[in-house]
Design a protein around this nucleic acid. Structure first.
Lengths: 200, 200
DNA sequence: AATATAAATTAACACTGTTAATTTATATTT
DNA sequence: AAATATAAATTAACAGTGTTAATTTATATT
């Protein structure tokens, strides 16, 4: 810790260090079980220092989530480059969403499951989670244009699919003790059922 | 004896009185924002009295939820008496699940959305939420027997449908500010997509 | 009326998020 | 190089939390 003051004299470094420590602890112990003091201890600062970089505990949480979901948005966009078949793009996008959620369960929980004290939706409107959703909308528009679907209400289809993939993701994250059928089989079943249900 | 019965019923009364007060406050202000002291104040007792009737705050919460979900189980069972057509029964059951969740959002949240600190699943195994789920399984078995579905994996179909209806229910409960299409239209779309997706 | 039991309370503990006041370190100016 | 201004970090404190143990009050039984 001798060189600590030097290394972190850059404000951005400490900010990121706080986020890294907090993310790790939120994932391991759950948001509610991690106190500002514990985070501070981990990085060798006092609790109140965190308030110099984040408005409050909730703000810290959301900054972390945004970083993560920027990656989801990227991933989905990347996937949409790989194929020309709109329905295959859609299927891959749905898969990516679900597996991304399962890979980052506590952050998925925070963004899409946990009821936020602050005004969530106004922030969701400008969030990376929203960008991921918008990308899905574009692909569905492609499917509609190619006359591949039962009807052409893009918004309705998007929300219906979102409900489906959010449902399986959140169930698998939350009800860890429930005797689910094999994970991949259930995920495939949900995706197949949804696609089959909207196909012309 | 009369006096003894009266005592017992008094005890039951206070127990129920605590649950009623707590439920009302949980619904209005959210579980996390309601303290044991606030509940106690509302009914004119001290906070510690609640611990004579419930193990802890979490236990209190779960007792409340069980009371509510006993009604969901009842409702779904009742619905399954009304029709002979298995697919129609299934459709009605799915609808009831969703609308029940939307009618009791904070309790749905507690049972199916909120990640519980205590071991949830062991209690879910004996819960009324489980009974509702089991009833759905039975109807799906009827559909399979009548050769109405694509395949005959009842467990997989049950969980796939559960994912779908849980998805739309929790989205509508949680993301109140999101610009969803008209609620009934979205719900119908989810149900139609799911049924259409599993039908032979 | 005395005693045993049940019910409810008060006091206390170890926490929590957060704010204000204060100290310590760094940067800028004289 | 010394004095001053600014930024960064800390300590102290507040009002609140869930929960336990010890104690008082009320009820029932002898």
């Amino acid at each position: 810790m001798v060189s600590r003051n030097r290394l972190q004299s850059d404000k951005e470094n400490l900010r990121q260090e706080i986020m890294d420590a907090a993310r790790e602890m939120f994932v391991a112990e759950g948001y509610a079980n991690v106190s500002m003091r514990k985070i501070a201890d981990k990085i060798g600062y006092s609790a109140t220092t965190i308030y110099l970089y984040f408005k409050d505990k909730n703000d810290l949480l959301h900054q972390i989530c945004e970083q993560t979901f920027a990656r989801l948005a990227q991933n989905i966009k990347a996937i949409y480059m790989l194929s020309d078949n709109p329905l295959e793009k859609l299927r891959s996008g749905l898969r990516e969403y679900i597996y991304f959620g399962l890979k980052h369960p506590s952050q998925y929980e925070i963004v899409f499951i946990t009821p936020l004290p602050t005004n969530v939706e106004s922030s969701f409107e400008e969030s990376n989670g929203k960008i991921a959703f918008d990308t899905m909308r574009i692909v569905i528009t492609e499917c509609v244009s190619a006359n591949l679907l039962k009807h052409n209400n893009v918004e309705l289809i998007s929300q219906t699919l979102w409900a489906g993939i959010h449902g399986v993701t959140s169930l698998l994250i939350q009800h860890t003790g429930f005797p689910f059928v094999e994970r991949e089989i259930l995920i495939d079943s949900v995706i197949d059922t949804l696609i089959s249900g909207i196909k012309a």
